[in-house]
Design a protein around this nucleic acid. Sequence first.
DNA 1: TGGATGACCAAATTTCAAATCTGGTCATCC
DNA 2: GGATGACCAGATTTGAAATTTGGTCATCCA
Lengths: 234, 234
Amino acid sequence: MTLDRSAAAPQTDPARAERILAAARELLLAWGYKRVTVDEIARRARIGKGTVYLHWKTKQLLFAELLRRELHEELGAFAAEITDDPAAALPGRVVREIFLQQTRNPVTRAIHAGDSEILGALAVTSAGRPVIRELGFHTLLARLVEVWRAHGLMAVTVPAADQIYTIDAVLTGFITGGLAVPGEDLGPDRRADLLGRTIKAALETSATPDEAALRAVARDVLAALGAARDVLVT
Amino acid sequence: MTLDRSAAAPQTDPARAERILAAARELLLAWGYKRVTVDEIARRARIGKGTVYLHWKTKQLLFAELLRRELHEELGAFAAEITDDPAAALPGRVVREIFLQQTRNPVTRAIHAGDSEILGALAVTSAGRPVIRELGFHTLLARLVEVWRAHGLMAVTVPAADQIYTIDAVLTGFITGGLAVPGEDLGPDRRADLLGRTIKAALETSATPDEAALRAVARDVLAALGAARDVLVT
DNA sequence: TGGATGACCAAATTTCAAATCTGGTCATCC
DNA sequence: GGATGACCAGATTTGAAATTTGGTCATCCA
């Protein structure tokens, strides 16, 4: 029994899908979700409007894939970093990195910040799949906490839910930017450092893992990241 | 040279001002800032609309005073608690308390959350005085950090600005509520505890102050609170 | 005579329907 | 049989009229 792709999705040129996504991305960054029209996307991709709908059932699903890819890429870069330096798998470092990436990438920034302008696409299940942000991010966070607890990096004497909530709240606070201190304005890197230190101090146990333990943690964190990435694959 | 009150503000019955404020408060909580009309306030206070303007120059200033009083009262309650238990002057406890009070009081909750619906009044200087939230809260926070650093409760090896920012960001995150964990929903008290622990772990030094030192801290924290309260007096 | 009042006004806000736009479809074309 | 764009219904925007509301002040008593 061969895989009958044409039944679900008729013959569609993958390269063309890329062109459409690229056009959508440009417009998204330039105008925000609401202002981008399918017409404009098609025009910029030099195809007919109807053709867009040969690739995606709705505008939302098109953008959902775009965002999914963006996250997928981010997670990949992050995984590479951990592979390179296992210490990056420690709680403080991970949260620090999430913050930095989400601060730098305008698309994912929109996701985390809940910018409904761009976010429209995400609040909805994509073809039966769970909402990206909610299930994706929280599942990942929950798994990471599980890993850290299993490796003795976080206290198991307190509920995991407390730790998850704390990370979530603190991360949100730093992303939201605090209430902006009147005087000086701390840069993203400085804020990222403060965030990392805060998470480390608040949640990491005093145990200092040796080289081998660190590698084991990195392995499990990478597995969690991998699982999260897989969810994001179309 | 006698104090000529009638020059600045003509004869006005203080008790009547209270009636007006009470009416305004009721309506504010019931309808939110925007929906409350001066007409309605006057009606509920059983006076003519013009009379309201004998007490306050604008609607905003009326509400500014209302909010100022609310904060004043809160700070007072907080000071009482510290007087009763000096340990309440420690960073974790203080932030915990700020969170709890702002969570419980609907009026001040609107202030911190930046609910522009109710907040309209606050974004503006009141009769030349600085904006309540911005200057008031941040000045207080800065002073508290100063006190804590002076007493060795916080590291002086890092910039105070970093500590202030961290407190601000973390507090904001917990108030914003984190991104609401899908499953269970932690109650306000539990969240307050987590917040307190986070601040304590992230910012308090390991030094455990003895009874005397604690009282000294409490004294200075009370002074800071007192100064903040004074700013709020009309 | 000076504090209290509410009719009054300009400016802001809301209404609401017409005009426009846009996501999605499908008959037609190549 | 894939690609297209005219087409449609529903959503959104527009704009002007209608209404509301913050603030004033001539008038009114106590």
